[in-house]
Design a protein around this nucleic acid. Structure first.
Lengths: 136, 136
DNA sequence: TCTCAATTGCTATTGCTAATAGCATTTACA
DNA sequence: TGTAAATGCTATTAGCAATAGCAATTGAGA
């Protein structure tokens, strides 16, 4: 038994998440995106007129940390900050952003499929519900 | 639907792991330990005469990053570096380290139980096998 | 309608974790 | 025995998240 901790749910969860995040980061790197940036892109594409704060609340990213993240996406020409009123802005995908989102979706759906394929069939359908029960 | 990403296995995995790690960190903080430190303590306690490199290989912590971690544990009087030969040292728990390990085990087993309790019964037994299939 | 609390977007800073590159010494194998 | 591999370490870096604080704007209740 090379790893006496692997029967602990918390440990297994951490190791699986680390491995997964590393692989996803590798797959997104060719698109010039980090995982957090890709999530923001997906969220901004899913619903219009969301503010930075709203996206941050959904993803559990604090307002302060959304700023440099959105700056990078804006500098890359993928999103725009479109004023809603004098205080807030909507995060809107540019044309290039929508194109990039399509690539992100291709990468992530292939990734999620590969991920699930590694899980034995009899456990597979239980994974997402079990995980979501842990934090939602 | 507050979170359109939560059906993605990778996303659910990341969110669950983050929530879990945060909670475990909070529970270990009163012992003066971080999660990584507690794992090293558990591993060093599980088998004797392991070197820093061996522990690092099991936990996927690089040699370079084991150094400050073990320094902290040593400064706290929980482990000792006992020379095996002129190159390697065994990481050995001190008396205080064995005592601390008992506290760590109490915290983690309570934690793991609480974790599993949040998972609906019909998914519960599938969680650890599914997670381990993702990285082992 | 006026006031005050809450919200927004931001700056600046910090700590933790992990990654990289490099180095001297020691060990193990062929 | 000679060479490749391993060990423990230093030093540095990048990414990510957390905190504190601030000016301006908005919104809700009196």
């Amino acid at each position: 038994m090379p790893d006496p901790l692997s029967q602990l749910p918390g440990y297994a969860l951490r190791r699986a998440a680390n491995a997964m995040m590393g692989e996803l980061a590798d797959r997104l790197a060719p698109l010039g995106l980090r995982v957090a940036e890709a999530s923001v892109l997906m969220l901004a594409g899913a619903r219009d007129n969301q503010t930075s704060s709203e996206i941050g609340r959904i993803l559990d990213v604090q307002r302060a940390n959304m700023v440099p993240l959105l700056n990078r996406l804006e500098r890359a020409g993928l999103v725009e900050r479109v004023p809603i009123d004098r205080k807030s802005s909507a995060i809107v995908l540019t044309l290039a952003g929508r194109q990039k989102l399509r690539e992100v979706e291709a990468v992530t759906s292939a990734f999620e499929a590969d991920l699930l394929a590694r899980v034995p069939l009899d456990h597979r359908d239980h994974l997402v519900p079990a995980l979501n029960a842990l934090w939602r």
